[in-house]
Design a protein around this nucleic acid. Structure first.
Lengths: 207, 207
DNA sequence: ATACTATTCTATTATTCTATTGAATACTAT
DNA sequence: ATAGTATTCAATAGAATAATAGAATAGTAT
């Protein structure tokens, strides 16, 4: 192969991966499956898309080997194909946040509007905090931050009495654009807890 | 802003960055400017594109704040907007290499065909090797690996006599898809030098 | 001032991408 | 076997993207 064809072929193949990430819905779907395996119905609902459209986007991701499937009873379960993919998503978010003033302001304004404090793990002086994962039980079991406990968003009102009011509660969900943690923090604060939201780009196991 | 709009807006803005990388020519242009500032003419020539088309692609990259411009005499010089961008490109290459069998084989077959050995820095047992940067002088001056010396690809035949035949020569260029280093290694080997190519995804300063 | 030149803009065309709809498929459950 | 259901396929229309050619612009050089 001539070096010009080699270069053009290679760039085309790499660009194909970027192109797959270059659609807001596919990006969201890929992040959803990065948080744990899900079937098409769940993904369609979470991403607010039609069934058929979700399936089509997922097939594009599958064709590029970014997600993989397996059948479990009547459902096709999609999951992320490789652990390097969430890492790529993280750097994409980072660059977007750094280079797009509009994105930066969208995120900062939203957090400001909710009035909830976001902290990074390293910024927490209190060593005796509770790290609270508010995602679903299956997402928690698929992978979570070291030392975290799980109270899914949906049941926080019933289960918050198991939490210690004297400790700082640091809640997190799927990442920067997931708003489960924001809502949980608000509920906890209203119930008299000392709670903040973990500032993170994308959910990663170690932190 | 409602949390659904917040999410959709944010994903749209992040996807816009990915979309910019989702074109083989733009990807190549972005990597070219990551190696050092260049004017439109240079970029068009290197990427084998028409002048107008190059300009249009560059404007898309500029609009997304991935590249920046400045005028120097009669030319507009494009350069990469931020150091986080080459890092994103590196992870994109990595994921593409891992997930696309076709890309992996394209690269492996090309290197096999040239018959040139690729090594990683850590694999070199001989501590007394020469690290040779074969890019242009201006690219070298913009940033190079620690300890590297520069003999641009274009003048290797005239300048190879300054190199030591008793030392291992490890040549590198702009990265995995750049073939300058391959050609230089071949010339050096034919002239009786002991030369190999540095295996690297994207040119980074430290290594 | 004027010519020159590097770059960008405009208009056009061909191509690719996206969402929708309804039908088809492939598997499970009985 | 048959029914049921989750998912995918196929066709389509509209929107967005990409490349080309030629005109326009904005600066430098004389």
């Amino acid at each position: 192969m001539h070096h010009v064809d080699f270069k053009e072929n290679s760039y085309r193949l790499i660009a194909n991966i970027a192109k797959a990430l270059g659609n807001a819905h596919r990006l969201e779907l890929l992040e959803l499956v990065s948080n744990g395996p899900k079937n098409v119905e769940e993904l369609a609902k979470e991403a607010r898309l039609s069934f058929a459209n979700t399936s089509q986007h997922l097939q594009i991701l599958k064709q590029l080997n970014l997600v993989k499937t397996k059948r479990v009873f009547t459902s096709i379960i999609y999951s992320v194909a490789d652990t390097s993919i969430p890492l790529l998503l993280k750097y994409l978010h980072k660059t977007a946040y750094n280079q797009s003033l509009e994105l930066k302001h969208t995120i900062l304004d939203f957090r400001k509007q909710t009035g909830i404090t976001s902290v990074e793990i390293n910024d927490i002086s209190d060593t005796n905090y509770i790290l609270l994962d508010v995602r679903s039980e299956s997402e928690f079991n698929f992978g979570h931050k070291k030392g975290a406990i799980n109270i899914p968003y949906a049941i926080i009102d019933k289960s918050m009495n198991t939490l210690d009011k004297d400790k700082l509660i640091v809640a997190y969900c799927r990442g920067e654009l997931c708003t489960f943690a924001d809502k949980v923090v608000k509920h906890l604060q209203e119930a008299g807890f000392n709670a903040v939201r973990l500032k993170e780009i994308i959910m990663t196991k170690t932190g």
